[in-house]
Amino acid sequence: MHDDWERERFERLMLPHLDAAYSLARWLAKNDGLAEDAVQEAYLRAWRFFGSLRGDDARPWLLRIVRNACYELRQREHLPGPAEDFDEQRHDAEMLAAGAVITLPVNPEAAVIARAESDLVRQCLGALPRDYHEVLVLREIEGCSYKEIADIVGTPIGTVMSRLSRARRLLQGLIAERVRPRETGT
């Protein structure tokens, strides 16, 4: 049962994270209007399930709800792409097959990536498969710790570590792939 005290606590713990919630939602929903809807849904759900929040670690708890709301809304809107279920094993196999690209010596990649324009970086980040995209957004943009990411995504910390590592390699490969043809004019 919620009372005034509970509502005051909810506002004190949850409203400071509204920017983080919206920022994450924009990346995961990939649409500003949908992101706003997702954040509103998430706050409604957070209020409903507020009793299940343990301690005061509200941010990852809220972001987990935001994440799930984003994916549900995308599904409801029949939007295709990375929000669909992602087959990690199949993708790992594909990545291994693409090993020639992603295990290129890192040094030249660094130089190429340093020249990548911001639009291109955003496009490539948005093009990553869902499981990799979300850990990278949570780590690099939202500044979450591995433990927080594990809580938000619902996986063990070891999985967060390996996904993050793959996500970075994959993004490096994607950016390098797209920067080079532009520079060579092909």
């Binding site: 920017d19 340093a114 911001s118 970086v121 980040l125 943009i141």
Partner: peptide, 9 residues
């Protein structure tokens, strides 16, 4: 590159 391109909204 990411932090330059993707400021939190």
């Amino acid at each position: 590159a990411i932090s330059r391109a993707c400021e939190p909204a």
